[in-house]
Simulated scan of single mutants.
Amino acid sequence: MRSRRQASARPRASLLLKLGTIFCVLFLHVPMAFIILYAFTTEDKSYVFPPPGLTLKWFAVAWGRQDVWDALTLSVQVALTATVMALILGTLAAAAVSRARFFGREAVSLLVILPIALPGVVTGIALRSAFGLADIPFSFWTIVVGHATFCVVVVYNNAVARLRRTSGSLIEVSMDLGANGFQTFRYVVLPNLATALLAGGMLAFALSFDEVIVTTFTAGQQTTLPIWMLSELVRPRQRPVTNVVAVFVIAVTFIPILTAYWATRSSAFAEGGGK
C-alpha cells in the first residue's frame, strides 16, 4: 500500500517532457524502421520513399548468397570466442580488484576499463602495430583479440559492481563451514554473479558481433558480416540485400541485449553496456 501511495504521489510528466521523450525515441529508432522497410522494397537501385512496392525476393537472394553465410559464420565464431575470453578475464580481474587490497589497485581498474573509452581507431592502430612488431599474421585470432579488448571491459564492469555489493562474510561463512575454494565459488559466489555475467556476456557478444572499426585493422583479408555490409553499400544494386542482412543483424544484437535487460532488471542494472 505504501509503495502504491508513493507512486500515485509522484508528479505527472509535463507535456514538454513527454514530447521530448517521444522525439528522443523517434530520433533513435526511425532510421532502423527505414532499414526494415527498404528490405522489402521492389526498387533495387536506390532508396525511394515511399517504396514503389513490397516484396520478399531480397530475403531469398540473401539466403542464397554464400558470401553472406561465410561472413555470418565468421562473425558468430569471433563473437562467441571473444565473449568466452572476456568472461574469463573480466571475472578474474573483477575478483582481484573487488576482493583484494594491493598497491595500485585503482590504477589497475582504470587500465582495465580504458580500452572502452578510447576511440576504436586508436585501439585498431595500436593492435595492428603490435601484431606487426610481433610478426603475427592476421587471422581469426587477431580479430578475437581485438574484440576481447573492449568485451573484457563490459564483463568486468558488471562483475565488479556485483562483487562489491556482495557481502564478503558469505564467503567467510562458507569456508568456516568446511567448503573448499571450488565449492565456495560454485555455491556462493557464482549464484550471486550469475545474472551479472549473463548480462555482461550478452552485451559483449552484441558488441563483438557488430564491431567494424577494430575489425578493419585486425582482420586482414577476412570479412566479417559488418565489414561485408560496409563493402556492399557502394554497390547500388546490392543495397536491398544489404538491408535484409541489416535486419538480421538488428535481430541478432537485439536478442542478447533484451536478455541482459530482463536478467538484471530486478536485481541490478547492467553497467558498462555502451561503447
Results as ranks from 00 to 15, higher is better:
residue 137 P to C: 01
residue 101 R to T: 03
residue 195 T to G: 02
residue 102 F to P: 01
residue 144 V to N: 07
residue 156 Y to K: 13
residue 185 F to L: 15
residue 113 I to Y: 01
residue 112 V to C: 10
residue 158 N to T: 06
residue 148 A to Q: 09
residue 92 L to I: 15
residue 156 Y to I: 12
residue 110 L to Y: 01
residue 173 V to W: 07
residue 158 N to Q: 06
residue 192 N to I: 07
residue 102 F to V: 09
residue 105 R to C: 02
residue 100 A to P: 00
residue 172 E to D: 13
residue 143 I to L: 10
residue 188 V to G: 08
residue 186 R to K: 15
residue 183 Q to L: 13
residue 115 P to N: 02
residue 110 L to P: 00
residue 105 R to D: 00
residue 186 R to F: 14
residue 142 T to R: 02
residue 171 I to R: 08
residue 150 F to I: 13
residue 122 V to P: 00
residue 135 D to L: 03
residue 185 F to G: 15
residue 110 L to N: 00
residue 141 W to Q: 04
residue 184 T to H: 10
residue 88 I to G: 14
residue 109 S to Y: 02
residue 148 A to N: 06
residue 192 N to T: 10
residue 176 D to Y: 05
residue 110 L to G: 07
residue 200 G to N: 11
residue 150 F to D: 04
residue 149 T to A: 08
residue 141 W to G: 04
residue 116 I to A: 11
residue 144 V to P: 13
residue 108 V to M: 13
residue 191 P to W: 07
residue 103 F to Y: 09
residue 117 A to N: 03
residue 188 V to L: 10
residue 178 G to C: 14
residue 163 L to E: 07
residue 167 S to W: 05
residue 122 V to L: 04
residue 191 P to L: 13
residue 142 T to M: 07
residue 172 E to G: 04
residue 91 T to R: 13
residue 95 A to P: 09
residue 198 L to V: 15
residue 107 A to M: 06
residue 144 V to W: 03
residue 146 G to C: 10
residue 188 V to I: 15
residue 123 T to H: 00
residue 166 T to W: 00
residue 171 I to S: 09
residue 162 R to H: 00
residue 174 S to V: 14
residue 186 R to T: 15
residue 187 Y to R: 15
residue 136 I to D: 00
residue 155 V to E: 05
residue 110 L to A: 08
residue 128 R to Q: 03
residue 136 I to W: 01
residue 133 L to K: 06
residue 196 A to C: 09
residue 127 L to H: 03
residue 165 R to G: 10
residue 146 G to L: 03
residue 155 V to H: 05
residue 195 T to L: 06
residue 169 S to F: 11
residue 178 G to F: 15
residue 190 L to E: 05
residue 173 V to S: 14
residue 187 Y to E: 11
residue 107 A to C: 03
residue 135 D to Y: 02
residue 128 R to T: 02
residue 124 G to A: 03
residue 89 L to H: 14
residue 152 V to K: 11
residue 133 L to G: 09
